[in-house]
């Protein structure tokens, strides 16, 4: 894919747990293990998976909040895998992140106006000169209008806002420097349902108006279906399926995707319920992943071959890619 704005190639992130003196010596946790993924300009790629599958770690590697253990990350066609802090800095304005919990990512002692304009004061404006006071003020007003915050709240502190309003502040901050890509990590999961819908709408409106590309990380499948054009499913550190969102939700190729979708309780009266596939047991530990296909221990379709040979992500038709020896039609 040449039009990719952000690309991961065979990306890995390993953490070492314990030291020389812990029983059994240090252990290697393969949080992300050989993931290849591309986010095209203007699209929203939804990244779903259960807790511990490595989706957040992958998100943080892609914006280089973490150093990468192996593979490559390319942003706007440029290899940023091994760039140092200084070299990354000019790229940061275009590559932003919105977190899950706005109350822990916003400084409680700063006013909203300072929080939102901080990126504008830290990063130089076009041409490398510092931004003037008037310029910053104008931009602040634009941003507050853009995310739906009232201007009379400029001088309030984060704790004076509700969860939804705080998330709007976090989004305004990420938008301040006109990013081309935002990685949103569980950005709506902590919100009440009625408020969550407002923030999903905000993300979608911003994309329409500003043409931002999103990597939208979430565990809630109905949210991902609403917001993303394409979806990638992760299991135990690897991507097991990618595809156009509608196709993937309608005709999942990987048995894990199928089971995951079938487990979502359906709230709407008119929606036909999927045949529930209840998976046995728990996700295996990423410290000691099973050999062969990592899903074989819980897969209802597993066969001998799955226990030995790890399946590669391959084209299974209709623009779907699946890492399975026996994908669904």
């Amino acid at each position: 894919m040449t039009a990719a704005l952000l690309e991961a190639e065979n990306l890995s992130k390993h953490f070492t747990l314990g030291g020389r003196f812990s029983p059994g010596g240090p252990q290697v946790l393969r949080a992300v293990d050989g993931v290849s993924l591309a986010v095209a300009r203007g699209e929203t790629l939804g990244l779903v998976g259960e807790s511990g599958c490595g989706k957040s770690t992958l998100g943080r590697c892609l914006v280089r909040l973490y150093d990468v253990s192996g593979g490559a990350v390319r942003f706007e066609g440029r290899d940023i895998t091994h760039l140092g802090e200084g070299a990354l800095r000019p790229l940061r304005p275009r590559l932003q992140m919105v977190f899950q919990d706005p109350s822990s990512s916003l400084n409680p002692r700063r006013r909203v106006a300072d929080l939102i304009t901080e990126p504008l004061r830290v990063h130089p404006g076009p041409g490398g000169r510092a931004r003037g006071r008037g310029e910053i003020r104008d931009r602040l007003h634009d941003l507050m209008d853009l995310v739906g915050l009232a201007r009379e709240h400029l001088d309030r502190y984060p704790h004076e806002f509700s969860g939804g309003q705080r998330q709007r502040i976090g989004i305004a901050r990420a938008l301040a420097l006109e990013p081309s890509l935002i990685v949103a990590d569980e950005s709506v999961s902590a919100l009440d349902v009625s408020v969550q819908a407002q923030i999903i709408n905000l993300f979608m409106d911003l994309q329409d108006r500003l043409g931002i590309t999103y990597l939208f990380i979430a565990h809630d499948l109905s949210v991902v279906r609403q917001i993303s054009t394409r979806t990638a499913v992760m299991y135990l550190g690897s991507v097991v399926e990618t595809g156009d969102t509608e196709t993937l939700f309608h005709r999942p190729a990987h048995p894990y995707t199928e089971a995951l979708l079938s487990a979502v309780p359906v709230a709407h009266a008119g929606e036909a319920r999927r045949r529930r596939i209840v998976l046995k047991g728990d996700v295996p530990s990423p410290l000691n992943p099973p050999p062969g296909c990592r899903f074989h221990t819980r897969c209802p379709k597993a066969q001998e071959r799955c226990r030995i040979e790890p399946p590669a992500l391959r084209d299974v038709g209709d623009g779907r890619m699946a890492a399975c020896h026996f994908p669904n039609e």
């Binding site: 509700s162 969860g163 939804g164 309003q165 009440d192 349902v193 009625s194 408020v195 969550q196 819908a197 407002q198 999903i200 709408n201 979608m204 409106d205 499948l221 109905s222 949210v223 279906r225 609403q226 939700f249 309608h250 979708l261 979502v264 359906v266 709230a267 709407h268 008119g270 929606e271 036909a272």
Partner: peptide, 20 residues
């Protein structure tokens, strides 16, 4: 407010304004 899991996707979710 809950995004549907099947059928047509609404352009905008019918959200409730404000917060509890």
């Amino acid at each position: 407010s809950i995004p549907p899991m099947a059928g047509a996707k609404p352009r905008r979710l019918p959200a409730i304004p404000g917060a509890p």
